[in-house]
Amino acid sequence: MAAAIPPASVSVTMTDSPLFTQPPLSQTLEDLACAYWSSDTLFAAIKLNIFGNLGDETLAVAELGQLCHCHPAELTRLLTALARLNLILEETDGWRNLPEAARHLIPERPEYLGDFLLYRRYLQPTWHTLTQTISSVPLSPALSRDDDYPTRNRHYVQALDQLARLKAQEIVAKLNHIPWHGPILDLGGGAGALSRALTQTHRQQAVAATLFELPEVLAAAQALYPASDAWMDIAPLPGEFLSHSFADHDRFGLIVLSNFLHIYNATNAKLCLSKAVTLLRPSGHLLIHDYCPDRGAIKGPLYDLNMLINTPNGQCHKACDLATWLADNGLTEARIIDLASDSTLIIARRPS
């Protein structure tokens, strides 16, 4: 895939790329849990006949979209994931099949495997019965789409907090090399895992954090962590960020947007960044943690497809775009750090 380069006015430092670092066991487990994201991406491409329509040519998205009867913007997100799966390649003038995909995924080719692979998809539903097939007692699912919203929200907060606690350890370790100061504004911080980790590491400095979240998420978080000491130095603040009015004196030394911007499309994500910068103190740091489709791990483009099908407007944003948007708001020096797991940090400092 062609590399995306930020404009010359943006100073980007690439550091800590973990290309040869063994991922933690927790990452291996998550990769197993999300393995179907890759297979469903492949199945969708076969069903849409992307490989067949590309053939031996290089086609622009608009032309390929017409042949496949696909929406260009959504198709681009699928093509990005297919490229990271090493099935196709993005050139300057469009997309083309890589040799193995052309060999096995173009219909009418002697070694075509599309029908075989789609038969594997046909078997998927029966695999969902594996637990009950093995169990000697009836088992109900932990969560169902038929459950009411409070139940689903409680499971959502608890599930994401389990991963966030592990990610927080990685993030805090990277921040140890940066002279950041509080107070902290943790935007969309879920149950507060990162706020908790940051305040605990700076307890001697009495750094305080504001955990900004939707009211129902904060309610679930406080039910998950009922003990008062779990909220030491953390003040929950309910609201929706774009519409919330902060007090004139509300300014922060560290603003964290961890897995927050991918809730929004590009237009609203830019608005969020612009608003966050206005809340940043001079010399303050802004930290973005997210899944970026243009970085090393395959999870970036796959998570983007997850947002496409599971949210109204969610979208994972390229790290180079985020760096450009930061520069547009006066934060011209961005440090990009790929974690040993599957996500990326972008750290920028507001001029004094």
Score class of each variant (00 low, 15 high):
residue 274 S to F: 14
residue 268 N to W: 00
residue 58 T to L: 03
residue 172 V to A: 05
residue 58 T to G: 03
residue 122 Y to Q: 11
residue 173 A to C: 00
residue 165 R to Y: 04
residue 65 G to I: 01
residue 5 I to G: 06
residue 75 L to F: 04
residue 280 L to T: 06
residue 107 P to W: 09
residue 274 S to K: 15
residue 180 W to T: 09
residue 348 A to K: 07
residue 328 D to I: 01
residue 14 M to C: 05
residue 166 L to R: 05
residue 312 P to K: 10
residue 329 N to E: 15
residue 90 E to C: 01
residue 140 S to G: 06
residue 283 S to E: 02
residue 143 L to P: 04
residue 157 V to Y: 10
residue 272 C to I: 08
residue 277 V to Q: 05
residue 75 L to Q: 10
residue 56 D to K: 02
residue 277 V to R: 07
residue 332 T to G: 03
residue 118 L to N: 13
residue 341 S to C: 06
residue 106 I to C: 02
residue 12 V to E: 12
residue 140 S to T: 13
residue 49 N to D: 14
residue 268 N to H: 06
residue 176 N to H: 09
residue 63 E to A: 12
residue 338 D to R: 07
residue 342 D to I: 08
residue 59 L to P: 05
residue 33 A to N: 07
residue 180 W to V: 07
residue 265 N to G: 02
residue 52 G to D: 03
residue 76 T to D: 02
residue 278 T to G: 02
residue 175 L to S: 00
residue 100 E to S: 09
residue 109 R to V: 08
residue 75 L to N: 06
residue 123 L to Y: 05
residue 351 P to L: 09
residue 296 G to N: 05
residue 184 I to P: 04
residue 9 S to H: 11
residue 119 Y to K: 11
residue 322 L to I: 09
residue 11 S to G: 01
residue 262 H to G: 10
residue 11 S to F: 08
residue 183 P to N: 12
residue 2 A to R: 05
residue 220 A to H: 06
residue 211 L to M: 07
residue 222 Q to W: 03
residue 289 H to D: 06
residue 175 L to G: 00
residue 127 W to Q: 14
residue 34 C to S: 15
residue 184 I to S: 08
residue 286 L to S: 03
residue 5 I to D: 03
residue 10 V to Y: 04
residue 214 L to H: 11
residue 92 T to G: 06
residue 204 Q to F: 00
residue 181 H to D: 01
residue 59 L to A: 07
residue 344 T to V: 14
residue 321 D to P: 04
residue 66 Q to T: 00
residue 66 Q to C: 05
residue 133 T to C: 15
residue 273 L to Q: 03
residue 85 L to Q: 12
residue 89 L to M: 13
residue 28 T to K: 14
residue 166 L to Y: 09
residue 140 S to V: 15
residue 305 L to T: 12
residue 224 L to N: 02
residue 103 R to V: 11
residue 230 A to I: 06
residue 198 L to P: 00
residue 148 D to V: 02
residue 245 S to M: 09
residue 14 M to H: 11
residue 99 P to D: 14
residue 169 Q to K: 00
residue 319 A to S: 14
residue 232 M to C: 08
residue 55 G to D: 03
residue 231 W to V: 11
residue 336 I to C: 10
residue 344 T to I: 12
residue 2 A to P: 00
residue 71 H to T: 05
residue 349 R to P: 02
residue 8 A to C: 13
residue 186 D to L: 13
residue 311 T to N: 04
residue 226 P to L: 10
residue 175 L to Q: 01
residue 338 D to P: 01
residue 288 I to L: 13
residue 14 M to Y: 14
residue 13 T to D: 10
residue 243 S to F: 01
residue 18 P to D: 11
residue 170 E to Y: 05
residue 131 T to I: 15
residue 34 C to R: 15
residue 8 A to M: 13
residue 170 E to Q: 10
residue 51 F to V: 09
residue 48 L to I: 11
residue 37 W to Y: 15
residue 222 Q to I: 08
